[in-house]
Amino acid sequence: MTAMPISYNQHIRRFQSLIALLVLCIVLSVLTDKFFTAANGLNVLKQVAVNICIATGMTLIVLTGGIDLSVGSVLALCGAFTAGLLQNGIAIPSADLFIGFTILGAVLVSVIAGALLGLFNGFVITSFKVPPFVATLAMLTIARGFTMLYTGGHPISNLGSGFAFIGTGSIIGIPVPVWIATAVVLLAVFITQKTRLGRYIYAIGGNEIAAKLSGIRINRVKLMVYSIGAALAALGGVIVTSRLDSAQPNAGISYELDAIAAVVIGGTSLTGGKGSVWGTVIGAIIIGVLNNGLVLLNVSPFWQQVVKGGVILLAVVIDKIGEKKE
């Protein structure tokens, strides 16, 4: 057996988003002396932590060839739900019952609620063969509507300093959201690279028919990834709510687009089967660094959007050129 035949070109492709990130960092370090500092680095990571959580879940979904547009709304609903549980608990007057929630309890219940919303997405997609785009588009509206109903359109605030630790605290100098995102990423990398579920995800995205004929229970895997994706969006909701000490009914609007952008910049194919969680993490950090750098350079917010869009295009175009060469 000879060694694995990987061309120079393939090596470059594997690391191209990492290279882009490094180049971006070097350029920003030269242009502004505020960029390359530990404080600013942590600041960027803290800002991208929520997107990393959501985008990691999105990666699993996109790898199967699907998409989830509802993550922003799920984030808002579950954030509001967490705040509501903490503040009011669940009261059932008819049964003379009141359930109060500890912080951990509220967080767990909300994340499970998020998973159930994702399970519903998956159910619609697998049972009725509704395209993921449409099914989750519907959920985007439905979950936002429920958020409004639940909050009455008003923020739920003053959730206590203990809860605020999740979004604003630090452990050994590193913000808690960064710890959470790191844990999520490591778990997702483990699942995708080292477990059967991970293989099945790639197999379904690579060739769904072949995967089915190989005995893989396609629907089960899809239910799983949509549930994980929405649970991670709910976790994002917890972090956002905690950081602001307030659940905003219009939180998370257009977050799905940032998550998809991170996935795409990270080199995951929207048709499924190709890509990685690491790529998505780098994609999310690229977006974060770009936002941060443009602010430091005093670029107008309007231009920031133009630049971000341009980077997404560039990433995809470079990827396509590489694919052709291969």
């Binding site: 080292k194 477990t195 059967r196 991970g198 293989r199 099945y200 790639y202 197999a203 690579g206 060739n207 028919i209 072949a210 995967a211 004929l213 190989s214 005995g215 893989i216 089967g273 190709k274």
Partner: peptide, 30 residues
């Protein structure tokens, strides 16, 4: 091509796809 193989993946992962349980360690890690 349409039903039997995942063309973009390696020989290894195409062969093992039907028996992933058998190449697991500690009940979970491939």
């Amino acid at each position: 091509k349409l039903q039997g193989l995942i063309l973009d993946q390696t020989i290894d992962s195409n062969i093992s796809i039907t028996v992933l349980k058998k190449i697991q360690q500690w009940g979970i890690v491939l």
